[in-house]
Amino acid sequence: MDAELMAFLWRWLHVISGVMWIGLLWYFNFVQIPNMGKIPDDQKPAIGKVIAPAALFWFRWAAMATIVTGLILATYNGYIAEALALGLNGGGAQTTAIGLGMWMGIIMWFNVWFVIWPAQKKALGMVEVEADVKAAAARTAMLFSRTNTMLSIPMLFAMVSAQNWTY
């Protein structure tokens, strides 16, 4: 298969994984978290025990797929080293833009796997912990989820701008 088609396929897999990741991130932040308070206590387990664990499964694995396909794509296109150095060792502003996007994505992936997921396991009762630890874990998960929502806006700007460079 020729190089351009391979690059296209890796980018397509990267974008489709990223849509699932950020789509679920925004579901948590714009739909689930703000509305939990409006759900009667006896109905909360429908979210906490069924919907949230399923959403978290696709969320964390989509994050993993996005970063793996993204790193493969950057390697395949030959700009991974320059991009991770933010274009300061060559490549110019387009490389700086994709590099800033990559670093924001890497930080977000780290937050998903090493902060949000461990905290959610405690908050949703997948791991038995004491009530105060559970409440603290729920707050940590929410704050890091919000941080990722905040980062998703400039991250996507950087990623899309690098693909549509006109200046």
Partner: peptide, 30 residues
């Protein structure tokens, strides 16, 4: 004091401010 990230609208505003910072950084390097 309440963490600013606890407000969803503030989170979105901070996200857009980061876009402006990003444009300035990239333009400066360009």
């Amino acid at each position: 004091m309440k963490n600013p990230l606890e407000s969803l609208s503030l989170t979105v505003i901070i996200g857009f401010v980061l876009v402006i910072v990003l444009v300035v950084v990239v333009q400066a390097i360009n």
